[in-house]
Design a protein around this nucleic acid. Structure first.
Lengths: 193, 193
DNA sequence: CCCATCGCGTAACACATGTTGCGCAACGTA
DNA sequence: TACGTTGCGCAACATGTGTTACGCGATGGG
């Protein structure tokens, strides 16, 4: 067997280039050629590792999601449940360059998913997990809250985080870190009551 | 002068076809030819009334926004400020087919705006107006609320509406009207406290 | 040292896209 | 009725797209 090449690593390289292009130039710029260029190769390599362009985009979305989840899990160690909740929410929001790029990718996929059933299904599943995760954190932080109120609270919380992220990406000057933090504080304060 | 044709009406026809295509098939399907087809004409007419495709999309976004604003203003007559706020929020959310299509368009533009500075500027301006409008309604509904708390509340409210709309469009089965209403109730209850 | 095998660069293909310009038909005016 | 103007259908164009296929070069096992 010739040419010992790590298949998974090559795919990761390409996926990485892909979501970087999406974040910096938008989905419509994420052509096969542009992706290849960003990965320092030609389209040949891209088509060699992915059946078609959709696969590449799908993989990029999964990769961004995975990275976010991993970072969130790192905050679960704290003792104060309210602080754990706060730090998780702040970890998701676009407060630094990394998360800003991630949100740019998500926003792009939001637009795509609106018309693509397959993407919508995947997005729906991820969102369900995210919601369940937050629900658990909220229950821990406010055990006395009745289930139906908690459910509505989590709905509002998930939605507000989505909205805040979008605002912060589309209008970063008007939404500095301080303002996002204030919104999260208010969100937590009211959601647990 | 021959051919008495209402210029504005023709433009409106084309804009209408445009946002319908975007809502039902996504932005990437909104090509000049597809728009022309949806408007029952050829690309000749489209290029005759718009300098380029960007203009058409811009006009479509403006038209959708205008329609929403108009419908919201119809709810301002009530006496109970809290009920006015609630009905305005419910009017924006995708509770019927019309608003669902509108949200589909917005979502598409969110994705586009992430990479297009011109669109982002326009979106930012609109969002500022929407925020100011809600701020006024909240102040009327909860005059005792300190300004800084109100500010954070409105941030959360705007964000939550954006997020709820997005969720409802991307995963309509999981977000029936009842659930959206419950979230709005919870949102108002906590935002005014 | 050879050669089967895999990686992937290169180029071609078929098609879709935004934009331009020609030219005809329709119409109000004179 | 004849004319000049305008709306816009139609076709061409250049460019960019996703995808397919060929072929060379590198590589490690025999």
């Amino acid at each position: 067997m010739p040419k010992v090449i790590d298949h998974d690593w090559r795919r990761a390289e390409l996926v990485d280039a892909t979501w970087r292009v999406i974040a910096e130039e938008g989905v419509e710029a994420a052509t096969v050629r542009r992706i290849a260029e960003a990965a320092n190769c030609t389209t040949g390599r891209v088509t060699h590792y992915f059946a078609n362009k959709g696969e590449v985009l799908r993989a990029a979305l999964r990769q961004v999601h995975g990275a976010t989840v991993e970072r969130m899990l790192a905050h679960l160690g704290g003792d104060d449940p309210v602080e754990v909740l706060r730090s998780v929410l702040l970890e998701v929001l676009p407060l630094d360059d990394t998360t800003r790029l991630e949100w740019q990718v998500w926003l792009a996929f939001f637009g795509l998913a609106a018309a693509d059933p397959e993407l919508r299904a995947e997005q729906g599943r991820r969102n369900g997990e995210w919601r369940a995760f937050l629900d658990q954190l909220v229950e821990r932080a406010a055990p006395a809250l009745p289930a139906d109120r908690r459910s509505a609270s989590v709905d509002v919380m998930v939605a507000a985080i989505d909205g805040l992220g979008a605002q912060a990406v589309l209008d970063p000057d008007r939404f500095p870190r301080r303002r996002l933090r204030a919104a999260v504080d208010r969100l937590i304060e009211t959601a647990l009551a």
